[in-house]
Design a protein around this nucleic acid. Structure first.
Length: 479
RNA sequence: GUCCCCAUCGUCUAGUUGGCCUAGGACAUCGCCCUUUCACGGCGACGACAGGGGUUCGAAUCCCCUUGGGGACGCCA
């Protein structure tokens, strides 16, 4: 039997981290077994579903590389099919019309809760045995068995047994005739030949009712695997107040898709002590039977670490393009400086995200703003003046603008001035970048370029001569 | 409230059918080394079987209770 999994987002918002992991698990499982994954848009809640959300979700999946083999199917385009099933259920007695008003239902729930009971429908219309008259409002309810219990083997949680007395006669068609979730899922899973339902833990309680519907339809059951939810760092359900929860936000943060995937796959799943998995390894090693039973907390620090790992080994040109895009986003033209790929080579070992890389690359493309106060106070001092003067002269006369030659010049000037290398390198860093932190100074000087290096050196010397009075504020930004 | 589920370092986790666990790895944190600043890298430190009962020669691993946490109880999905 070919494995068929599915990812069924409801388009009421962005694709969040938890959904992405569910999609990943479905994708990995299908890929690993030569099966396929269906993308199904569960938009039966027409009030809250939007086309924009559909677009954003698909965009996120494409960014992550989680491709689907079939779909996207839209449930709103299958209403005729659901109607047909509902009519069938009505005809064979598996469903019935209910005329209870929302008010009655609310009162019922309220009183049950007050009495310490689990709120559920009281079967008021279950045995009425009549159809709505013209113009009369009615919903359709599934006639859930009263006795016994539903038992199923969940791949991750093991045997699950829930008593039918715990289950409601759930509404499968609203007053306006549109079908609801628990019905559409089952119909679709049957029609689309889904063999494995891998979904969030929050659906575990729905499963027995859905199983009853599967039975009513005479359909065979798929394999169920309910994966624990992802919690926030505080152990509470992951939500916006924990920071970014949307996949696309991570993209905009400068996270690489393969890093997010790698981080996500390790949440609730592991393979010994291995931390890094490329796509092929994941596909090869992943199995739903190895999914953990307990919920995991999202940890940004670890994601950042994984991202750093991938930044260090990613293709330079690819990162160069990403860097260029980040720079562009903050109004800087990459053409105003070195080829992004060169900057990538210099910075890739020192950043955790592409956005951080852009932050650290700014001075290659635009004049640095005011000097960082402490750095200027400590390093752009009178003692540094003669050294910088000598350095500027030597650099101006340097024949080959290459890192090794630049390095030699700095060493020579330092020696001639009776200074140690850092005593020259640090002020130079401040002059070039505005702060004391840069990659190796020779490479930095090389990439900043001769013209800019000399003009920034001149500005630094002016700063020292004027005793820091107009400390770099006359330059501001000019990209 | 009712029903269901979960429980190893702060976090992600390893821990094959109970013995090799003095509980391993990774992130984070803190030190030291490397060093041209910051990183990277190397080395090291800190740090957990929620608590209590059993079962057993022996339990992180099995059972029960307690506690803590999560989920579900919609004409949402």
């Amino acid at each position: 039997m070919t494995v068929v999994t599915r990812f069924p987002p409801s388009p009421t918002g962005y694709l969040h981290i938890g959904g992405a992991r569910t999609a990943l698990f479905n994708w990995l499982y299908a890929r690993g077994r030569g099966g396929e994954m269906v993308l199904r848009i569960e938009d039966t809640d027409t009030e809250r579903s939007t086309q924009e959300a559909v677009d954003v979700i698909m965009q996120a999946m494409e960014w992550l590389g989680l491709s689907w083999n079939r779909g996207p199917y839209f449930q709103t385009r299958r209403f005729d099919r659901y109607r047909e099933v509902i009519d069938g259920l009505l005809a064979d007695g598996h469903a019935y019309h209910c005329f209870c008003s929302r008010e009655r239902l609310e009162d019922l729930r309220e009183s049950q809760r007050a009495a310490g009971e689990k709120p559920r429908y009281d079967h008021h219309c279950r045995d009425l045995g009549r159809k709505p008259e013209a113009g009369e409002d009615a919903v359709v309810r599934f006639r859930n068995p009263l006795e016994g219990s539903v038992v199923f083997d969940d791949v991750v949680r093991g045997r699950v047994e829930i008593s039918n007395s715990e289950m409601d006669d759930l509404i499968i068609a609203r007053t306006d005739g549109t079908p609801t979730y628990n019905l559409t899922v089952v119909v679709d899973d049957v029609d689309m030949g889904i063999t494995h339902v891998i979904r969030g833990d929050d659906h575990t309680n729905n499963t027995p009712r859905q199983i009853n519907i599967f039975h009513a339809l005479g359909a065979s059951l798929p394999v169920f695997a309910h994966v624990p939810l992802i919690l926030g760092p505080d152990g509470q359900r992951l939500s916006k107040r924990h920071g970014a929860v949307s996949v696309l936000e991570y993209r905009d943060m400068g996270i690489l898709p393969e890093a997010l995937l790698n981080y996500l796959v390790r949440l609730g799943w592991s393979h010994g002590d291995q931390e890094i998995f490329d796509l092929d390894e994941m596909i090869d090693l992943f199995d739903i039977t190895d999914i953990n039973r307990s919920a995991a907390s999202f940890d940004l620090d670890k994601l950042l670490w994984v991202n750093q790992h991938y930044i260090r080994q990613a293709d330079v040109d690819r990162l160069g393009n990403l860097l260029a895009r980040c720079l562009h986003r903050r109004g800087i033209r990459p053409s105003d400086g070195p080829r992004p790929g060169e900057v990538v080579e210099l910075l890739r070992e020192r950043v955790q995200t592409m956005v951080q890389m852009a932050d650290q690359a700014l001075y290659f493309y635009a004049e640095p703003g005011a000097y960082q106060p402490e750095a200027a106070a400590k390093h752009l001092v009178p003692e540094a003046l003669p050294r910088l003067e000598a350095l500027a002269e030597a650099l101006g006369a340097l024949e080959n603008w290459r890192a090794e030659d630049i390095n030699r010049v700095i060493k020579d000037v330092a020696a001639a001035q009776g200074a140690k290398f850092p005593q020259l390198a640090i002020p130079l860093r401040v002059a070039l970048s505005g702060d004391t932190v840069t990659p190796s100074i020779d490479q930095t000087v090389r990439l900043v370029g001769r013209e800019r290096t000399l003009s920034r050196l001149a500005r630094a010397m002016e700063f020292i001569r004027s005793d820091g009075v107009n400390g770099g504020k006359n330059t501001g930004k000019n990209a």
